[in-house]
Computed example of a mutant assay.
Amino acid sequence: MCTGKCALCVGGSLYPLALISIICNIILFFPGWDVKYAQNGQLTDEVKYVGGLVGGGALVLIPAFYIHLTGEKGCCSNRCGMFLSILFAAVGVAGALYSFVVALVGLINGPYCKVGLIWSTPFKEMNESYLKNQDIWGLCTEPKNVVEFNVGLFSTLLVVNGLQLILCAIQMINGLFGCLCGTCIEKDPL
């Protein structure tokens, strides 16, 4: 496969992943599908780090545009364009990695919720992971179903950011080949 076509494929694949990442992060601001928790600041700390919005969203979307444009400039654009695609893909790797780590920590620590009369992160200090024991999820009385809500969205972010990492790493390798080997534009026979 030509390096330009590969860049076109990678760039096109990053668009929906960045959109999913942004949507998941925005939804995380509304646990229990209610605005009052965001207004009162009763959110999981990892939601406030906006990993999906900034990291998996903007820092992947900008490289996706450039990588896609690099692929559209002919078969492989030029060596300079492919070199720049390596740098943009590195920015995408950094953004996806940031979002991945934030989502992983959010999944490990668990949600910020009301336990009895106190708001806390009840699963953070436990010796055993709350993910293995669904019986204790009922500790969180408010927002309703916040554990399932956070687990589902943070897990989705983990998968999406993992795919973004892989695609941006592929583009870094692809860009290196395009930069070193040059273009693969077919010459017209005379």
Rank of each mutant, 00 (worst) to 15 (best):
M1R: 15
C2E: 07
G4D: 02
G4E: 01
K5I: 15
L8M: 06
G11I: 07
S13R: 02
L14E: 03
L14C: 10
A18E: 10
L19V: 14
S21K: 02
C24W: 01
C24S: 11
N25T: 00
N25M: 03
I26S: 03
I26Q: 04
I26H: 07
I26E: 01
I27R: 11
L28C: 09
F30R: 03
W33A: 12
W33I: 08
D34V: 13
D34A: 09
D34Q: 12
Y37L: 12
Y37A: 09
Q39P: 03
G41T: 03
Q42F: 15
L43P: 02
D45A: 10
V47H: 01
V47A: 07
G52H: 00
L53C: 04
G56F: 00
G57R: 02
A58H: 07
A64E: 12
Y66C: 06
I67P: 06
I67T: 09
H68D: 01
T70W: 13
G71K: 09
G71S: 06
K73Q: 10
C75I: 08
C76H: 08
S77A: 11
N78C: 10
C80R: 13
G81L: 13
G81Q: 08
M82C: 12
M82P: 06
L84V: 09
I86P: 09
V91T: 13
G92K: 00
V93T: 12
A94Q: 04
G95C: 12
L97N: 08
Y98I: 09
V101R: 00
V101T: 06
V101M: 01
L104W: 11
G106R: 05
G110L: 10
P111S: 14
C113D: 04
C113W: 04
K114Y: 01
V115Q: 07
T121G: 08
F123M: 06
N127Y: 11
S129A: 11
Y130V: 06
K132Q: 13
I136V: 13
I136D: 04
I136T: 15
W137T: 01
W137N: 02
L139F: 08
L139D: 12
T141D: 10
T141H: 00
E142Y: 13
K144Q: 14
V146S: 09
V147E: 05
E148D: 15
V151H: 05
G152E: 09
G152T: 14
L153M: 10
F154S: 01
S155H: 03
T156S: 15
L158P: 02
L158F: 00
V159D: 05
G162T: 05
G162S: 07
L163G: 13
L163F: 14
L163P: 06
L165F: 02
I166P: 09
L167M: 11
L167R: 03
L167P: 02
L167V: 11
C168A: 04
C168V: 01
C168F: 13
A169V: 10
Q171M: 11
Q171I: 04
M172F: 06
G175I: 04
G175R: 08
G175F: 05
G175K: 05
F177V: 03
G178P: 03
G178A: 07
T183P: 00
T183F: 00
T183C: 14
I185V: 15
I185A: 15
E186N: 13
P189H: 15
